Amino acid sequence: MPFAPLKNDTFLRACWRQATDHTPVWLMRQAGRYLPEYVATRAKAGSFMGLATNVDYATEVTLQPLDRYPLDAAILFSDILTVPDAMGLGLSFEAGEGPRFARPVRDEAAISALAVPDMDKLRYVFDAVTSIRKALAGRVPLIGFSGSPWTLACYMVEGAGSSDYRLVKTLMYSRPNLMHRLLEVNADAVATYLNAQIAAGAQAVMVFDSWGGVLADGAFQAFSLAYTARVLAQLRREGADGHPVPRIVFTKGGGLWLQDMRALDCEVLGVDWTVNLARARSLVGEGKGGKALQGNIDPNVLFAPPAQIETEVAKVLQSFGKPHKDMQTNGPTHIFNLGHGISQFTPPEHVAALVAAVHGQSRALRA
């Protein structure tokens, strides 16, 4: 085996709907700007891409939150837009503005020219996966990730973040066949990218459909869900060490379509803070073919005092309901997370309160 044996498999067990002694917890964007040590490392790197493309720095910042908190998983430090960057769109990050593409794709010629990129252009990501996995030394599992085909398309057409998605939706409604062509390339690129992360050492992979929730009913199924399914169908089932690799899908704003997402060929569905966990459990978490659920506390809860954070953690755990405790069978399981990424303004000590509350309260629920 090229990597150290895993010492804490709680997260992976929950992904497979196996009983655990506590509810595992990790946080979206847990390696990020709310940590002063991250800010210091980014300053050394000179820029976000300088950080993301340097294997040593990417390893360092991935491990920083684990050195502070007893989290149950690490997630690769990278960005969802590395794939379109490798397609030649020219990604940059301007201070205070977020990501931007120098060459957005908005017409037939630009979209027809798109292809699955040479994965050697993303070698820095896969080298970081292997480096992080080795540095973890079996402490917790490592999650790899990508943006969904639809979410990548939003950035690729808009050229940056958007408040109204006018350009990408104009393309979708006026030239649906052209949008399908873009999404097909994206789906095959994402699958290839995630498979390379798995080969490099990722022990679970997550598809972030960050902007699926901006679509209308019907459009979501045709332009987002179908292409997430296309990604999942192509993914490797075993990791570099021969162990099975669970697949997580998170659609922000996707609570309306949980029943549709139950049919996805994945193990875990992430939900945002608008979703009632008890209802989600009844729709997708129970019975044969059920999914593990991941989420879903509002990230802004972390601005409340620690005592209130503990109260809100209790609400989430109670909403999910009675934990699955039979070690011999599979059943409904919950992975505690935020309903979206952590804010850069979050007090680090409040994260400590959250993690301690999840571990302590969830153990008490199983006693």
Score class of each variant (00 low, 15 high):
Met1Glu: 09
Ala4Phe: 14
Leu6Trp: 09
Lys7Val: 13
Thr10Ile: 10
Thr20Met: 01
Pro24Met: 03
Pro24Tyr: 09
Val25Gln: 02
Gln30Thr: 14
Arg33Phe: 07
Ala40Pro: 03
Arg42Gly: 04
Arg42Ile: 03
Lys44His: 09
Ala45His: 04
Gly46Leu: 10
Phe48Asn: 02
Leu51Tyr: 12
Ala52Val: 15
Asp56Pro: 10
Tyr57Leu: 15
Ala58Asn: 10
Thr59Pro: 05
Thr62Tyr: 06
Pro65Gln: 07
Leu66Asp: 09
Asp67Ile: 12
Asp67Pro: 02
Pro70Ser: 11
Pro70Gly: 06
Leu71Pro: 00
Ala73Cys: 12
Phe77Asp: 04
Phe77His: 02
Pro84Trp: 06
Asp85Glu: 15
Gly90Asp: 06
Gly98Cys: 09
Pro99Gln: 09
Phe101Gly: 07
Ala102Asp: 15
Pro104Ser: 06
Pro104Tyr: 11
Arg106Lys: 14
Ala110Gly: 08
Ser112Ile: 00
Asp118Thr: 12
Val129Ser: 07
Ser131Cys: 13
Arg133Ala: 08
Lys134Gln: 15
Arg139Pro: 05
Phe145Leu: 10
Gly147Asp: 07
Ser148Ala: 15
Tyr155Asn: 07
Met156Ser: 03
Val157Tyr: 06
Gly161Glu: 13
Asp164Ser: 15
Leu167Trp: 10
Lys169Ser: 08
Lys169Ala: 05
Leu171Arg: 04
Ser174Val: 04
His180Asn: 09
Leu183Thr: 13
Ala189Thr: 01
Thr192His: 01
Leu194Gly: 06
Gln197His: 13
Gln197Trp: 06
Gln197Ile: 00
Gln197Thr: 04
Met206His: 10
Val207Tyr: 15
Asp209Cys: 10
Ser210Val: 02
Ser210Cys: 09
Ser210Pro: 03
Trp211Ala: 00
Gly212Pro: 01
Gly212Thr: 11
Gly213Val: 11
Val214Trp: 04
Gly218Val: 10
Gly218Arg: 07
Arg230Met: 14
Gln234Ile: 12
Phe250Asp: 03
Lys252Met: 11
Gly253Glu: 07
Gln259Cys: 02
Asp260Thr: 08
Leu269Val: 12
Val271Pro: 01
Trp273His: 09
Val275Phe: 13
Leu277His: 00
Val284Pro: 01
Lys291Gln: 10
Val301Gly: 02
Ala304Tyr: 09
Pro306Ser: 07
Thr311Gln: 14
Glu312His: 09
Val313Pro: 00
Val316Asn: 02
Gln318Arg: 08
Gln318Trp: 04
Gly321Asn: 05
Pro323Asp: 09
Pro323Leu: 04
His324Trp: 15
Lys325Ile: 12
Gln328Ile: 00
Gly331Arg: 03
Pro332Phe: 00
His334Met: 03
Gly339Ala: 06
Phe345Arg: 14
Thr346Asn: 06
Pro348Ile: 13
Glu349Ile: 02
Val351Ile: 15
Val351Tyr: 08
Ala353Met: 04
Ala353Pro: 00
Ala356Gln: 11
Ser362Cys: 08
